[in-house]
């Protein structure tokens, strides 16, 4: 796959550390993320995956370290030195965040169409017809029927909610999407369909993605590179196939070998 078109990284992470009091959330994490690249962060519960993701997405300030992002004008900016207004604009235009629990990422009391249209309206779109047409188009892309556009997400199944959340995030054509266990809590067939959809969208839109998952199969299917975390530290990283087929660290070997083979 020739998705690594640019040599300039989109996101640069330098020694990001987060403490919760005396306890370590994640420690000394550094990596570069390039445009069009999908990075999976794997590890068991409590290994610091979500802490790291929250630090990256400016939802949780790191105790130490720096995170730089290449803005649309090409300049590299430290995320935690942006003004609140800049950061919010970034989060609703250039970025997406897909929560594990779709209800966290959706407005449950407004219709699906309004959920998808919210970002458009937030950046100044004021034409109802256009907003609705765009929302309809995006619902189609995530395989939600047009006639559900005026229904509340409350009436949607888990899988549909997750797809709606993805549409809502992608409508402004972001360049970077964070995903926290996007397939968690879904049954296996729905998971497979969602993964197919995600893979297609990521490839079509050339998205950069940081995906947190404890499911190695998800990492295998979606990601180009993988980072294995344990007790707040990155213990192994590399190309996904390489790490999963030939794990070096004992812990990674344990992780890989603990997948049930049906």
């Amino acid at each position: 796959m020739s998705v690594f078109m640019s040599e300039e990284p989109l996101l640069q992470v330098h020694n990001v550390t987060r403490y919760y009091g005396d306890r370590i959330g994640c420690s000394n994490v550094s990596f570069d993320l390039f445009p069009g690249e999908v990075l999976a962060i794997v590890g068991e519960s409590g290994s610091g995956k979500t802490t790291l993701l929250n630090c990256l997405s400016t939802r949780l300030a790191p105790t130490a370290g720096a995170i730089e992002y290449r803005m649309r004008d090409g300049s590299m900016r430290n995320l935690y030195q942006l003004t609140e207004a800049e950061r919010r604009l970034l989060m609703r235009t250039d970025w997406g965040f897909v929560h594990q629990n779709a209800a966290d990422g959706l407005r449950m009391n407004v219709s699906a169409g309004a959920n998808v249209g919210e970002r458009l309206m937030a950046v100044g779109d004021r034409h109802y017809g256009n907003i609705r047409a765009t929302a309809d188009d995006w619902l189609g892309r995530v395989e939600i029927d047009s006639d559900r556009i005026d229904d509340d997400p409350r009436s949607f199944s888990g899988g549909m909610r997750q797809r709606l959340q993805i549409a809502r995030n992608l409508v402004t054509r972001p360049r970077l999407v964070f995903m926290d266990e996007p397939t968690g809590g879904l049954d296996v067939s729905v998971q497979a369909r969602l993964l197919d959809l995600l893979r297609r969208l990521v490839a079509d839109l050339g998205l950069s993605v940081v995906i947190v998952t404890h499911d190695l199969a998800v990492a295998r299917l979606l990601s180009h590179r993988i980072m294995v975390m344990r007790q707040g530290n990155v213990i192994e990283s590399g190309l996904t196939d390489q790490v999963l087929d030939d794990p070096r660290e004992p812990y990674t070997q344990l992780l890989v070998s603990s997948i049930l083979q049906v």
């Binding site: 249209g117 919210e118 937030a122 950046v123 609705r132 556009i149």
Partner: peptide, 14 residues
């Protein structure tokens, strides 16, 4: 950050 206000109006029309 007033996008939300229009979400309400959108809902009205929808």
């Amino acid at each position: 950050d007033y996008g939300l206000m229009h979400v309400k109006l959108y809902e009205d029309i929808a």
